[in-house]
């Protein structure tokens, strides 16, 4: 009990005084996970669109594969990426091992399946009648796809937010690819693991609170962006329409 109250006191102190170590770790976490989220979204949304709007042989099998990869363990992704970018691996020449770049790569690979799968369901969730209506109104194939993606924007946003959540919360990739090197690749989750192991509960709790706060801020900002696009509030309407 003492550990907890003391820890919370220390956490408040660290946060209020903007402790440089804590801020550096939080900043790096945010940088890596946001980068991974943006890169993953730029890949996942167009590919999901392609998969949704085309019929091809093996589509069902591909969807099942994508859904299976939702639950791929972070350490497995860590292992695979490690083997790819280690000195002897095929991408060894990039020198990404134990660098933030390598961690971004790992998290991107980790969250692409879940983002892609959820974007495909988001597009599939748009009423079939909408698609027919758009074509009947004289939309070209491209105009139709754009409007359907816009119609699914809330659900697509949820997919992106969930991807970000998985990236910033994971430890496996960050630990195996980053190596938890102080001031270089130490992020919130790896720092919490380390400090807890060393008995520095206050520091861990502070980092935990910050981790949640960072997640909250990102989600709020992303929601504001989408509601700005459509002049109505996702708060009232439950967030994920269409």
């Amino acid at each position: 009990m003492n550990d907890i109250t003391e820890g919370i006191n220390q956490a408040v102190n660290l946060i209020v005084t903007l402790n440089p170590d804590v801020m550096q770790i939080a900043g790096l976490s945010l940088y890596i996970s946001l980068s991974a989220t943006i890169i993953a979204a730029l890949i996942a949304i167009p590919v999901a669109g392609f998969i949704h709007f085309h019929d091809f042989f093996g589509k069902r099998a591909l969807l099942i594969l994508i859904q299976t990869l939702y639950s791929v363990p972070t350490v497995v992704v860590g292992l695979v990426i490690y083997l790819m970018i280690s000195k002897a691996g095929p991408l060894g020449f990039l020198g990404l091992l134990f660098s933030p770049g390598g961690m971004i790569l790992g998290q991107t690979v980790l969250i692409i399946p879940i983002m892609m799968g959820l974007v495909i369901s988001a597009l599939g969730g748009v009423d079939r009648g909408i698609s027919d209506t758009l074509v009947a109104l004289g939309a070209t194939g491209f105009q139709k796809i754009i409007e359907i993606i816009k119609e699914a924007r809330y659900a697509i946003l949820s997919a992106v937010v969930l991807g970000f959540g998985r990236a910033i919360a994971e430890v496996g990739v960050a630990m195996m690819i980053g190596g938890n090197i102080r001031d270089q690749t130490r992020v919130l989750t790896t720092a919490i693991t380390l400090e807890t192991g060393m008995g520095n509960f206050g520091f861990s709790i502070a980092l935990g609170i910050i981790l949640l706060t960072v997640a909250l801020i990102v989600v709020v900002i992303l929601n504001l962006i989408t509601s700005g696009l459509s002049h109505d509030s996702p708060w009232i309407r439950g967030g994920s329409q269409g």
């Binding site: 009423d127 009648g129 909408i130 027919d132 209506t133 074509v135 009947a136 109104l137 004289g138 409007e147 816009k150 119609e151 459509s230 002049h231 329409q241 269409g242």
Partner: peptide, 17 residues
Amino acid sequence: RRRMGMVFQKPAVLNAT
């Protein structure tokens, strides 16, 4: 097709004004 207009039995409206 752009010289025709179609109204479906179940009207589908987009989530916009």
